[in-house]
């Protein structure tokens, strides 16, 4: 089998280092907030069909697998702007929606 062929190494330079850091931030922080936002919405929805505490535990367990998928996608997706759009944009949308909906549902 031998040693696998090397990947295309990005050209050195400040610009690509910054792009890398940007991608890592989008993936790790943005992706986390996106996952957290999605599962919070899911917990609220599932609270109508099962005990609320059960819904919270269920979505939290699945949340780790969701975050894993987001992380892998963030490094596979070629275009950096898309990564930011999905993670940060999605995080803002889902967390925002959750924060807005929650007092309405609880009250």
């Amino acid at each position: 089998m031998g040693v696998p062929h090397r990947t295309a190494v990005s050209p050195p330079g400040l610009f690509s280092a910054l792009k890398l850091i940007s991608r890592i931030l989008a993936a790790v922080v943005g992706g986390y907030l996106l996952s957290a936002g999605l599962i919070t919405l899911a917990a609220m929805a599932l609270g109508f069909t099962m005990a609320q505490s059960e819904a919270v535990v269920l979505v939290s367990m699945l949340g780790f697998l969701l975050y894993l998928a987001v992380l892998l996608w963030s490094f596979a997706e070629r275009r950096l702007w898309r990564v930011w759009a999905v993670t940060a944009g999605g995080a803002a949308a889902t967390v925002g929606l959750a924060l807005w909906l929650a007092p309405l549902l609880a009250g």
């Binding site: 957290a36 599962i39 919070t40 609220m44 609320q52 505490s53 949340g63 780790f64 967390v95």
Partner: peptide, 29 residues
Amino acid sequence: GLIIFFSIHFPGVVPIVYQDKQADFVKEA
């Protein structure tokens, strides 16, 4: 290992979903 600490790693779910009744989660779970 991650699932063990779900409440530390996803700390926002209970406060947002339960609002000011977070003790209900602890009591029920």
